[in-house]
Amino acid sequence: MKDSDEKEKKLRKDIGKAYGDYVKQFTPSPAYVSNGIKAFLVGGLICTAAFWLQKRLQDGGMSETDAGAFVTILLVVSAQLLTGLGVFDSLAKFAGAGVIVPITGFANSMVAPAIEYKKEGPVLGVGSKLFTVAGPVLVCGISAAVAVGLIYWMIGRIQGV
């Protein structure tokens, strides 16, 4: 009984692989080159603009850390505002990863699900849906960073002794 179950599973896997290959010939591939160029240019522009702003703020006497924080805040706020206005999805449709990989994509990923769950209320609707996409990012990122901190702390202790 168990044997035939295993066989069926294996057969299904083989069929899936063969059919997946067969299907590929009917599927147009994405426009790799033009998508890549657009993402590179738009992403590069956002970073360059952020760099320019950072320099201006530092010229005005701000510390590097503070200026960096302000740049981040500005990027987050503008991305979220554009999401609220319903413009960000059109931007992303054009630029793809060019606006998704910068911190703007993270900001968008919070507002986009939350705004759709307004009718479900401000607490369990918007309040919880802010984190449908951002939650995993924060959880994984912060956990990894805390682990790094602890490892560095332990190494420091061992070396200190």
């Binding site: 599927t27 999401t83 999805d89 705004i115 759709e116 996409v133």
Partner: peptide
């Protein structure tokens, strides 16, 4: 979500 920035494959 609809407002989420993503590209739809062909």
């Amino acid at each position: 979500p609809v407002e989420h920035g993503n590209q739809r494959p062909p």
